[in-house]
Design a protein around this nucleic acid. Structure first.
Lengths: 270, 270
DNA sequence: CGCCTCATTGACTAATCTCAAATGGAGTGG
DNA sequence: CCACTCCATTTGAGATTAGTCAATGAGGCG
């Protein structure tokens, strides 16, 4: 809960206010993005931040098939969820950035259906199943908010699916970087000119369903087209608007509002 | 609620028991597949079946961007959810079969982020947002079950994503038919030798991220390999086990149990 | 019968993968 | 400081998969 002094480029630097730090936690921000939080809701949320843990680069948070369900709230660093296939290839499902909730789907089932590992050093708070159970039985409004966060994740997976099915390699790469840029922007990292990106071309390829070789070639092409560069851990957008048009990037899927939050009850004009 | 007499091949034929028909509704079965239902839970579920409606072939249930949130419980027939892209192609996200819940994600947001239309004639019960809100505020156990159903859908989308990213055209087709066969088997339609399938090759292609032309060629190849045939609205598995091996089909993702249902609390042996 | 949609086939093209190898920086031990 | 390894990146050449364009066939329906 103390201010970090070394200021990793991947860490959240919260604008702390000593009076109610609870509202400033990464998870509270996440929930706030889909519903409005009352003060009553804040206590159980703050509770979720008791078990802060550190993870090294490449460390596994949990593994597919593992039965002790865990979830995490990512405070700083990058992680990814993935599945390894029979033929040895792996598919990265999602990249998790600071503020993201990891493993909600795992916690709902007896066994995790995917693995999660870190990409950088990571600070994360572990959330146990009983914490969720408590939220669900004691604060139904929060339960709906958790459901909404889960639905938002689902919307991102759907967009990923469409990317893999319908976009060319160059569009996939552009689209991913635009999405990451926007998501990082929301937690105060990077801006429209670029962002620090710790991914290797292998990880990029595993997410995009390409070979790293092809990914490399397309990165060169995008550089030569004057759209973006990705070198030395830094993404630079050379022409943001041209890139948005090129990738046909519509950020709508990142902007959903929850329809069932208490403050919109009865607010239906149709 | 009465027994249907014409017995469409795509309809559920429930084993009716006059005493508690509620437990036999499609949605109750769906919920039962992830959690155990108490009698108290059954009443609000039965309530969801008040608004039974009929839909013609190709009729739209709701459209992307539409703001009056609707969900449906599919009683008989097939439907699909899809998104149409800027370039005019469309991606089918899911096929919905009898017993499936349609539009849960839409009902959670102000606007639907995909469209849904029927593939065959359809009987479905409309579920309003206030029904869900009632469930969430009054029966938290049911809320968790709804969340679990939603997570199960998410697991299917993830598998679809992996299919699009990592499997060849022939594996995609085989995998889809195996999945549909298993899902239909669970609601009493079809078996390991095959099932009635109302899809056109265009619809198959739109789901699989292929052109219909290539789909057609691969269907011929699968026929010539002696694995399966799909002709005249009928899928026939010629060699089920060989097909499972060929498609590397692991039905685990269709078999998740909810971990948070009340009757498994504290029931973790590992 | 004429029209329509869906299914089928052929010939060619384009995107991506596979195999192979060279480059280059970061760390490590001598 | 240098030699060495390790790993990510970069490039080339050829193979494979799937898409595009074009045309034909088959069944249903007014």
């Amino acid at each position: 809960m103390q201010r970090t002094s070394h200021a990793s480029p991947y860490a959240i630097t919260p604008t702390h206010d000593a009076t109610d730090a609870a509202r400033d936690t990464a998870f509270a921000k996440k929930i706030s993005s889909v519903t409005r939080l009352s003060d009553d809701d804040l206590l159980p949320i703050a509770d979720l931040h008791r078990r802060r843990r550190s993870f090294a680069v490449g460390q596994e948070l949990y593994h597919e098939g593992q039965s002790d369900q865990r979830a995490f709230v990512l405070a700083s660093g990058w992680a990814c969820s993935y599945k390894v296939l029979e033929n040895g290839t792996r598919q990265i499902l999602e990249f998790q950035l600071p503020g993201d909730l990891i493993g909600l789907r795992s916690v709902l089932f007896h066994r995790a259906n995917h693995s999660v590992e870190t990409i950088t050093e990571v600070q994360a708070s572990e959330v146990l199943q009983r914490d969720f159970r408590q939220i669900f039985t004691q604060t139904p409004q929060l339960a709906m908010a958790v459901l909404a966060v889960s639905a938002k994740d689902a919307a991102m997976v759907v967009e990923h699916l469409i990317t893999l099915s319908q976009r060319s390699a160059a569009e996939r790469i552009s689209h991913l970087f635009l999405e990451l840029g926007l998501r990082l922007d929301r937690v105060g990292i990077g801006n429209q000119s670029g962002f620090p990106c710790p991914l290797s071309q292998y990880q990029l390829a595993d997410y995009l369903g390409l070979t790293s070789i092809h990914t490399n070639r397309i990165l060169r092409a995008l550089r030569e087209l004057g759209l973006l560069t990705f070198q030395k851990g830094q993404v630079v957008f050379l022409d943001y608007q041209a890139l948005v048009d090129y990738a046909r990037f519509d950020p709508a899927y990142l902007n959903h509002d929850c329809a069932m939050s208490p403050d919109v009850q009865g607010d239906f004009t149709t």
